[in-house]
Design a protein around this nucleic acid. Sequence first.
DNA 1: CGTATTTACTAAATCGATTTAGTAAAGAGA
DNA 2: TCTCTTTACTAAATCGATTTAGTAAATACG
Lengths: 337, 337
Amino acid sequence: MKQITMADVAKLANVSKSTVSQYLNKRYDYMSEETKKRIEKAIDELGYQPNFIARSLKQKSTATIGVIVFNILHMLTTQVLRAIEDVCQERDFHVIVCNTDDDPEKEKKYIEMLRAKQVDGLIIFPTGKNLELYEKMAEEQFPLVFVDRMVPGIPADAILLDNHKAAALAVNHLVEHGYERIGIVAPPIVPHVIPRLERIEGFKHALAEKGLPVMEEYMVGMEISRIKEGLTQLFSSDCPPEALFAINDLTLMEILNFVKDNNIRIPDDLALISIDDVPFSNIYTPTLTTIAQPTFEMGKKAAERLFMQIDQKNEHHQQILRFPPTLIQRGSVKQRT
Amino acid sequence: MKQITMADVAKLANVSKSTVSQYLNKRYDYMSEETKKRIEKAIDELGYQPNFIARSLKQKSTATIGVIVFNILHMLTTQVLRAIEDVCQERDFHVIVCNTDDDPEKEKKYIEMLRAKQVDGLIIFPTGKNLELYEKMAEEQFPLVFVDRMVPGIPADAILLDNHKAAALAVNHLVEHGYERIGIVAPPIVPHVIPRLERIEGFKHALAEKGLPVMEEYMVGMEISRIKEGLTQLFSSDCPPEALFAINDLTLMEILNFVKDNNIRIPDDLALISIDDVPFSNIYTPTLTTIAQPTFEMGKKAAERLFMQIDQKNEHHQQILRFPPTLIQRGSVKQRT
DNA sequence: CGTATTTACTAAATCGATTTAGTAAAGAGA
DNA sequence: TCTCTTTACTAAATCGATTTAGTAAATACG
């Protein structure tokens, strides 16, 4: 089953390869109708399919981008990815998807291999730990957009949630409903995961704004697998929190698991609000009050910024875009009496 | 910022391109230590990165596969995809992901473009409507694996759930818990969506086995958006079903929505069982009894079958693999008294 | 009518690797 | 010492397109 190439088509149509190439690229400027017909006929007689790889080599463009995420299983990732794919579909671009599991080594390997495969650009949910690599790409003006996290010092576009605002939205909503003893639940706080830091910061700041003290013991920051333990300890204290703020969907799940195990009633015993609008928020009992990220808009914008860089090969200046979160009031926070 | 090529490395190291190529491919058979050192030095002095596209052109292999799914937002898809990516990662292959939204036109375009891009194989959740295309690929022995659905008459590998068994598992579980009036909820039944048909068939067959009548009015098969209507009508009848079997996660969501709106208590007023183990099945109240698909195993196997075809370019014969579903007993089906 | 321009093509170079066939030098064996 | 191998390379062809420079024929123009 040997490949049929342009040369075969050319021979059959009795023209040169160049002419076939012109035909395929619709450069009909100086081409007789008759020649067009002959080429068309030859093409479908042979069932010729162009080899895009050969074209890519010459044109230095693969019409393919890479998207490197932590884990495609996370909702945020999946939704952003879907939006990116939609934008790419319009431009006949394809998307290579890679999972890093937040491992910098994997990330490094993927970035290097994708660049070797000559992708036209990269959208990355960065681990934040391959500074030299990020720097090199930025220096070379390689089209690059960070999503979800940004990397301080790297002049690349970044699409982020306005994390301060998200935390403020949560705190204000709780305070306005009469809650004062508010806890926050998060994965471990590490310096290179900026959104986590910003959400905690925003949380503290919003509490201060409302004149409430920041209680260190109400701040649970640990590995997902240990959160239930942490909550158990927190809720066995004399004065447990009246409300909990989950900074993402993973921590929310742990909290829901915990309250179920311990027969804590929401919102009567404990109010609950979280960032990330999980798909079951509407059907859970009670329905869940959440802070939604505009994931599709974020994915769309990420792709658009990337194409902007791909299109205009001249210099482009960095933009850090923060998207507004939305409070979705449902049933897991009630007015206290 | 011009590309650094093998020729540049060769010049600097004072060897031929061929030798550099040998070095990169670790064919050290007849190469002096000194030459190796010189090449290595030249490579990192220039910061040379090989161009994989050029290599692909010559080698006729891109180390890239395509995965064409309906919608990456569906859980099943995401999980299968993740498993595929893991297998690919081990072999240094990359995955291009495409969404068809179950539109045959989009599917066609993707298949053609991915083949033009010379992907080494394709894993497809098929719409089932591009028969000529599927046929052509099978004929050409192009590495191909279908997942979730199969296409009758196309001799390609297929990775499926054992749908009959899944339905039987559901029905038997309900019957054994004392339920007799069992309804089934599904998207529209169309001839080319085999799993849907098989689940319905399995449902009827299992009822018959248990000596129960198949009640047409208990079979809701309509667009997701109209299911709530359908349920409303069903439950306003004299003799509504005592148990419902949702054939996938989407229909389950609609049912949960419906019962919430109508204050139907599960499992007291209505027992509920579904195919697809949704992520919140453990934290929902009540916890949800489900039939889980072994999504990761299915994804892994799909990738393995594909690589089997990619590796042995000689003929390979079709396998249709049906994976066993698992009943996960939780709280949405109780023993009737 | 002779030159200039336009039309309709083609030959050959190119993209950046891999691979095959070949060669010069060194070493082995009789 | 002479031939045969082995070692350590290289030149050139190749993969399948695109693109540039060029050419022959037809047409336009003064």
